[in-house]
Amino acid sequence: MKLAFVLLALVAAVCAQKEPWCRCGAFITFDDDEAMVYEMPEVTIDSCENHKQCKNSCTKEMNKYSHYGDLWAMTPLNKTVGQSICETLSGLKHDFVHNHYVYGYYEVCGGPWEYTGIASQGMLCCDDGLQEHCIN
């Protein structure tokens, strides 16, 4: 009887597992901090071992959202990609950001964040939460 109960519990645990999933996010690196500045909706993938599918899906979605890393491209909310990021950073107490690239990352089934290989075309500069053109 105990064996049947253990087997039933094991089957229930396996059935309760979620579908394999993938997260996509854009990050800025500071000297002592990493800040997620944008997160895409979760993507379903074939398996938790399929990192390539996750990476490709994230790369495609981030390029679509940002027009291939253009921080001055307009979003559906009628503001630039960079302005949306500056507002997010301001909420994270990073009101002044100067000369930082934005990098794309992906996460498979709760594992570590991995670099997609994509970055913004130019650097991001924010002055009190407002996007500005960077001056080197």
Rank of each mutant, 00 (worst) to 15 (best):
M1E: 09
K2S: 11
L3A: 15
A4N: 09
F5M: 06
L8P: 00
L8F: 03
A9C: 14
L10A: 14
A12S: 13
A13D: 12
A13Q: 14
A13S: 15
V14L: 14
V14A: 15
C15H: 10
E19I: 07
P20Q: 00
R23Y: 08
C24T: 05
C24P: 09
C24F: 05
F27G: 00
I28K: 04
T29R: 01
T29C: 00
T29Q: 00
D31V: 06
E34C: 05
A35T: 10
V37H: 05
V37W: 01
Y38M: 15
E39A: 14
M40T: 09
M40A: 13
P41R: 07
T44M: 06
I45P: 08
D46L: 08
D46S: 14
C48S: 11
E49S: 14
N50I: 04
N50Q: 03
H51F: 11
K52S: 15
Q53I: 03
Q53P: 01
C54F: 01
N56I: 00
S57Q: 07
C58I: 07
K60S: 05
M62T: 14
N63T: 07
K64N: 13
K64F: 11
Y65E: 14
Y65N: 11
Y65S: 11
H67Y: 09
Y68C: 07
G69W: 03
G69C: 08
G69Y: 05
G69S: 07
T75M: 04
T75Q: 02
L77S: 13
V81R: 01
I85L: 12
C86Q: 06
C86E: 08
E87N: 12
T88M: 11
T88C: 10
L89Y: 08
S90N: 15
G91C: 08
G91T: 08
L92Y: 09
L92S: 14
K93L: 05
H94R: 13
F96G: 13
V97Q: 05
H98E: 01
H98K: 00
H98Y: 04
N99A: 11
H100Y: 01
Y101C: 10
V102D: 00
V102Q: 02
V102N: 00
Y103E: 12
G104Q: 06
Y106M: 03
E107H: 05
V108S: 01
V108Y: 02
C109P: 07
G111H: 09
G111Y: 02
G111W: 04
P112M: 08
E114P: 02
E114S: 09
E114V: 08
I118P: 03
A119H: 06
A119D: 04
Q121N: 05
Q121P: 01
Q121C: 03
M123W: 02
C125A: 13
C125S: 14
C125K: 11
C126Q: 02
D127L: 06
D128G: 08
L130T: 14
Q131K: 05
C134L: 01
I135W: 02
I135C: 04
